[in-house]
């Protein structure tokens, strides 16, 4: 979307620059309970994008007054490590990180049963260790795993993935190169067990008829990622896989 030509063709003979087909996700790895101190934690790698999420709480509010009488307050921080990008990123929160922290918090508020913990605070911290596209959706997927690992009741697990448009074609799970030189990036996160969308954004330009199509593709990806989330949780906690 920078208006510049991509150094490599983004689509050639139906294959993407990294050899994937339009509907292929990048390889995904997930781990939970990777941090000692946090009440719940998760690590997620999708392609070269890597994030760590930690959850603290429900706990006492850090300052008096930061409470709601009928539910828990959620604090959420999406943050990129200074070494996560090609050029060093200033560790001070950027406007982008402030916006993403907000949309991620709002996505998680839809699933956490906050009314069960009035007058408490639940903290969700996500650090991007390596950024190669799709960091916000990776952050949400990892945050929801960390919340589950912390035993915080949710309406359902949240998984996220971005659909992009490259050389006029919709493709699933775009990486940084496809984001940078493609025509559109539409991150979606949802609760697949309830068919609810909790995050929806579009950066770029798509045709009206492409919107439902892009959403459908994202949902296919979300269901696949959700299956992996369940698997990693079942490996640690048992239960149906």
């Amino acid at each position: 979307m920078s208006g510049k030509e991509s150094p490599v063709p983004l689509l050639k003979d139906g294959k993407r620059h990294d050899g994937r087909g339009p509907m292929d996700l990048r390889p995904i790895e997930m781990k939970i309970g990777i941090l000692h101190n946090a009440d719940g934690s998760a690590w997620l790698k999708i392609g070269k994008t890597e994030v760590v999420a930690a959850v603290y709480g429900p706990r006492e509010p850090p300052m008096k007054g930061m409470v709601l009488p009928d539910r828990a307050v959620i604090r959420c921080r999406y943050h990129m490590a200074p070494f996560s990008t090609e050029e060093r990123k200033n560790p001070a929160p950027s406007r982008r990180e402030i916006e993403l922290s907000k949309v991620i918090r709002e996505a998680l508020e839809a699933t956490i049963l906050t009314h069960l913990f009035p007058r408490t605070v639940i903290d969700v911290f996500v650090e991007v260790i390596q950024a190669d596209g799709g960091t916000r959706t990776a952050a949400i997927t990892a945050a929801s795993l960390a919340l589950a690992d912390a035993g915080i009741p949710m309406r359902g697990l949240v998984a996220g993935v971005a659909v992009g448009k490259v050389q006029g074609k919709l493709v699933l799970d775009i990486d940084e190169l496809e984001d940078m030189y493609g025509e559109a990036d539409m991150p979606v996160a949802g609760i697949p067990t309830l068919n609810k969308i909790v995050l929806l954004q579009l950066n770029g330009v798509i045709e009206p008829h492409e919107f439902p199509q892009a959403l459908k593709m994202a949902w296919e990806g979300i269901k696949k990622i959700h299956a992996l989330q369940k698997k990693v949780l079942a490996t640690k906690y048992g239960g149906e896989q």
Partner: peptide, 11 residues
């Protein structure tokens, strides 16, 4: 396109 606020939306 932006979803803003803690709402969820049926698919």
């Amino acid at each position: 396109l932006q979803k803003s606020g803690p709402a969820w939306l049926d698919l």
